[in-house]
Design a protein around this nucleic acid. Sequence first.
DNA 1: ATTGATAATTGGTCGGACCACTCGACCAAT
DNA 2: ATTGGTCGAGTGGTCCGACCAATTATCAAT
Lengths: 246, 246
Amino acid sequence: MTLAAKKLDPVTRSRLHEEIVSQMIGRIVAGRFRPGERLSAEREIAANLHVNRATLREALKKLEVMGLVEIRHGDGIYVKNYLESGNLELFKEIVYLDEVFDPGILADTLAIRKILVPEMASRAAESRTDGQLEELKAIAFAEGDDDMLERDLRVHHLVARASGNMLYIFILNFFNQLFRDYGYLYFSDAKNRGRSARFHRELYEAFRAKQPAKARKIMADVLVYTEGKIFAFYKNNYGARPAKRR
Amino acid sequence: MTLAAKKLDPVTRSRLHEEIVSQMIGRIVAGRFRPGERLSAEREIAANLHVNRATLREALKKLEVMGLVEIRHGDGIYVKNYLESGNLELFKEIVYLDEVFDPGILADTLAIRKILVPEMASRAAESRTDGQLEELKAIAFAEGDDDMLERDLRVHHLVARASGNMLYIFILNFFNQLFRDYGYLYFSDAKNRGRSARFHRELYEAFRAKQPAKARKIMADVLVYTEGKIFAFYKNNYGARPAKRR
DNA sequence: ATTGATAATTGGTCGGACCACTCGACCAAT
DNA sequence: ATTGGTCGAGTGGTCCGACCAATTATCAAT
């Protein structure tokens, strides 16, 4: 099965305006609409799509939040350069456009992750509160190795809160949303679950003793490990190591 | 009738559904709605707000993209934990909720920036194409020091493209959107404009010679400089150095 | 050529209607 | 008592037609 097979929502694909959103994102990203170009009037677009104008407008509101279009009252709807104004929500949509997570984009995501996460773990180890330490302990030393995905996401979220950096919490949400969809593959391997459990306990130690450098290294190591596993998965299933396309 | 109060102030008046968005964000972030809590029915909320249901729905669609609410067909609308599902678009809205950019959040943003941007500049210096080098040259050696804000944003965007990391482009968009709103303060000082011009030229040199370490240091230095200026601005205008609240 | 009023175009909001889905109450079969 | 199915109330999703509000194009008056 493909990576995306799991991601498909449980038979709930009914919302019409979301289909419009996906379709328009696809067209704009594919270059069928150029930046600065003015779209047809809402009434006309709605007629072309055979949907009601209210439905189209709901789709347009979502596209507006994603930074893909600019809507000017009394004027019209203009396509924005998504490379300059698109946000992570759009990025996520682009990732999901294709059936398979694009290897290049996956590699990009892991690269950013390796830069940011260890550094924030370091700061978190320094500024964590005693309550956060107890939280981490409860997760790290819980019985069994089930729900390891959810447990891992909680650890990362705890690190984010302990770091005290509000922005990092929101950036982490982006990573976690991706891994909530694709991470089950990684955690289906008992060996990987064990690796994460060890990671949680080691991180707890670093947090307890307030050792930033140690926390950074622990986090960096586990990210390198998971990255290797993910790349290996791609190699086995798609015959090539992730590389940039385009 | 409904809009009577608003019509008195047509200058400040924005789109109705956007006011609903801001209002609901404020309420949820302030804790008036708890995560998991179910909101009233659309028809009821619309009646309470004295707006049409279609208008409310447009607001809800935006809130949904921001990760603030979950809408379930046939069931209801549920408040999500924005600390777990909120995205950068929501973060930006929170920043803009207060009149003044919250100093703590500002410091958080600059901290992440200092971690990520120099590293990406390093990679960009390595993998830049000749065309991108020429682009940078054109910006760095342009005449005059006007539009330095726009010029600086373009440099950063160029670095992002040269880094080859698609995700970084979208993360940078977040930073740039903030600085497009607040950066004019920084660039109103001729000394700062000169500092940026020098930064552009130095970066060009590092790109030309493909010196990653040099590019990283140049970027790190200019970020430290700008951060100091921004903090100083806050100290002068609000009497205190940015510090975490909460 | 400039100005100012006017019309045309377009997005924003409105009110009401019906469709599609969810959930819980109820009932029948086991 | 449990299971499974039916059905109705409630809720979000979509549709329709209308009017309000902002922008732009047009053109007459100066």
